[in-house]
Write a protein that binds this DNA or RNA. Structure first.
Length: 349
DNA sequence: GCTAATGATTGCTG
DNA sequence: CAGCAATCATTAGC
């Protein structure tokens, strides 16, 4: 609109001077959305917002660029239309001026009259512009709500990501509250955002708690899985016969959550009790981990409140004897070694 | 098409 | 402000 008044050269006054709040709002919004801003960086602001809102996971960058493309499209339409209107306005104005000039030969025409005419034209065109802006805003809004409401286009996480998350969850069942660092680590590994990790854990905790039975199988599965990987790790260190038994709590995948002895591996613990280790050359640290585990197992409730220096865990709501889960469901908290009802499961390991 | 699973959002709480 | 609980909206399996 700056252009408009400038382009018209004639001070259109009337409508522009009292900055129409409605128009201002539209202008602000278009600016914020990057539609009417500086030529380049089409929709950078909005695009950034989109990126922030929906995380930069690889696959949704596709959607992201889709979003950007659509926004640029809107932007382009807006600009060409705007230009068209301005041009038309200018042309029409000069045309009228010429007419008036012609007429001024036959009859006297006061400058006031000219100004009035120009004013009328200008008003007409700026109302058209207003409409253009309004509909552009609407289009952007629709686009935004479509793309930014992640629920509309949610993708399931990759199998691998779910795997990683589940591994962490089940190997920290006694306190499935990853710290901020742990979340970041998980996020990186799964190529999702930290808040997605938080969401996932939030959902997981509550759904697990709600129907522990349903997750039993999964719990066993992941416990076994982590146990196996841990077993490999130990196998490398210790060349013992170890049939199938799970071993050191090397905390699932690659131990990047640096808390190797979190005593959370409830599943493994039981087999650990079967002392398949001689300690001897296992190395002090492994042995101590085993000890920790035993300790944990023997501990009353088993919801290892202690957990010794688990600095990575946010202590959150570990109540003394219970775990995070019995907050509302005293129900079947069963087995001391955590696996709610995992009693039968230990045989599988 | 129906339903379960699942990721995200909302409102509330401490 | 993190987490919980309820709920929504989409995806995936049948």
């Amino acid at each position: 609109m700056v252009l408009v008044s400038a382009g018209l050269s004639i001070r259109g006054a009337q409508e522009e001077d009292p900055p129409d709040p409605q128009l201002m709002r539209l202008d602000n919004m278009l600016l914020a959305e990057g539609v009417s801003g500086p030529e380049k960086g089409g929709g950078s602001a909005a695009a950034a917002a989109a990126a922030a809102a929906s995380g930069g996971s690889s696959d949704n960058s596709i959607e992201h660029s889709d979003y950007r493309a659509k926004l640029t499209q809107i932007r382009q339409i807006y600009h060409t239309e705007l230009e068209k209107y301005e041009q038309a306005c200018n042309e029409f104005t000069t045309h009228v001026m010429n007419l008036l000039r012609e007429q001024s030969r036959t009859r006297p025409i006061s400058p006031k009259e000219i100004e009035r005419m120009v004013g009328i034209i200008h008003r007409k065109f700026s109302s058209i512009q207003m409409q253009l802006k309004q509909s552009t805003c609407e289009a952007v809004m629709i686009l935004r709500s479509r793309f930014l409401d992640a629920r509309r286009k949610r993708r399931n996480f990759s199998k691998q990501a779910t795997e990683i998350l589940n591994e962490y969850f089940y190997s920290h069942l006694s306190n499935p509250y990853p710290s901020e660092e742990a979340k970041e680590e998980l996020a990186k590994k799964c190529s999702i955002t930290v808040s997605q990790v938080s969401n996932w854990f939030g959902n997981k905790r509550i759904r697990y708690k709600k129907n522990i039975g349903k997750f039993q199988e999964e719990a066993n599965l992941y416990a076994a899985k982590t146990a196996v990987t841990a077993a490999h790790a130990v196998a490398a260190a210790v060349q013992n016969n170890q049939t199938n038994s799970p071993t050191t709590p090397n905390s699932g995948s690659s131990g990047s959550f640096n808390l190797p002895n979190s005593g959370d591996m409830f599943m493994n613990m039981q087999s650990l009790n079967g002392d398949s280790y001689q300690g001897s050359q296992v190395g002090a640290n492994v042995q101590s981990q085993v000890d920790t585990l035993r300790h944990v197992i023997n501990q009353t409730g088993g919801y290892n409140d202690g957990l010794g220096g688990n600095s990575l865990y946010s202590p959150h709501n570990l109540n003394a004897n219970g775990g995070w889960q019995d907050a509302t469901t005293p129900s079947s908290v069963t087995s001391p070694t955590e696996g709610p009802g995992s009693v039968h499961s230990d045989t599988s390991n």
